[in-house]
C-alpha cells in the first residue's frame, strides 16, 4: 500500500486471513538454514504485518489526520520491529500457545505503542491535578451527594498527602488525565513496567489512606 490509499483499503488488508502454516512448521522453519529460513522470515513478516494492520485499523479513530498510506507506514514499521523481537526471542517460545498467537502479540504491542505515541505527539501532558473535575460526578440523591463528596474529598486529600511527588505525578497523569502509559513513559524517559509499578504503589497508598479515613471499597 502507498500514501493516498484509503482507510477502507487498510481495513480490507487487516481482515485478510492469516497464512495457513502449521504451528510447528513456523518454529522449525525459522530455525532452519538458508532458503528455508529466508522464506520463513518472509512469511513471518507477512503474519506480523497483518497483525499490525489489524491493530492500527482498530485504533485509527485516534489518528484522524493520517491518511491510509500514513497508517500503513505505521503498520509496516510495527511489523519490522516486531519481526526483530520475534527472531531475537525465538528461544523463549516453548509451545505453550500457538506460535501465531505468540508472534501476534509482538506486532500488536509495537503497533499499539506507535499509535498511542503518534496520537499524543503534539499534545501537552498535564502531570499535576490542575482541576479535580475528573472526580466530579452527578449524584442521584442528596444523601448520595454527601457520601460521594466525602469519598472524593478523601481521595483528593490522599493524592495530596499520602503519595510521593513521583507517585502523584504518575497517578494523576494515568488515572485522572487519561495519558496512555506508553506516552508518559516516553516523556519521562521510563518504560511501561516501571511506571506501572509506581502506579501500583500509589494505588496501594491511596487505598490505605481511604481505609484509614473509614472508606472500604468506595463506601464508608
Amino acid at each position: 500500500m502507498r500514501a493516498g490509499d484509503t482507510n477502507e483499503t487498510m481495513s480490507a488488508a487487516a481482515a485478510t486471513a492469516a497464512p495457513a502454516t502449521a504451528p510447528d512448521d513456523w518454529h522449525l522453519d525459522l530455525r532452519g538454514d538458508g532458503r528455508r529460513r529466508e522464506e520463513a522470515i518472509a512469511r513471518l513478516h507477512g503474519l506480523l504485518l497483518r497483525a499490525a494492520r489489524f491493530e492500527v485499523s482498530r485504533r485509527r479513530a485516534s489518528l484522524p489526520r493520517l491518511t491510509g498510506g500514513d497508517l500503513d507506514e505505521l503498520a509496516q514499521e510495527a511489523a519490522d520491529d516486531a519481526a526483530m523481537s520475534v527472531l531475537r526471542r525465538l528461544d523463549d517460545f516453548r509451545g505453550e500457545s500457538r506460535f501465531t498467537t505468540w508472534a501476534y502479540k509482538f506486532a500488536l504491542l509495537e503497533a499499539a505503542v506507535k499509535v498511542r505515541r503518534r496520537a499524543w505527539r503534539d499534545r501537552e501532558l498535564t502531570l499535576e491535578p490542575e482541576t479535580w473535575s475528573q472526580l466530579e460526578h452527578p449524584a442521584p440523591s442528596p444523601a448520595a451527594t454527601a457520601e460521594r463528596g466525602a469519598l472524593l474529598a478523601a481521595i483528593q486529600e490522599g493524592i495530596r498527602t499520602a503519595l510521593t511527588p513521583r507517585q502523584r505525578q504518575v497517578l494523576v497523569a494515568l488515572a485522572l488525565n487519561g495519558v496512555p502509559i506508553d506516552v508518559l513513559a516516553e516523556r519521562l524517559g521510563s518504560n511501561r513496567n516501571a511506571l506501572y509499578k509506581t502506579l501500583h504503589d500509589a494505588r496501594r497508598r491511596l487505598r490505605a489512606h481511604l481505609e484509614a479515613t473509614g472508606f472500604t471499597g468506595g463506601r464508608r
Binding site: H137, P140, A144, R148, R203, G217, G218, R219
Partner: peptide
C-alpha cells in the same frame, strides 16, 4: 463499589483492582 458506573470506573483507575 458504588451505584454509579462512571464513578466506579474512576475509582478503578485510581485505586486499581486491589487484588
Amino acid at each position: 463499589m458504588t451505584t454509579d458506573p462512571d464513578l466506579d470506573l474512576t475509582l478503578l483507575r485510581l485505586l486499581g483492582p486491589g487484588e
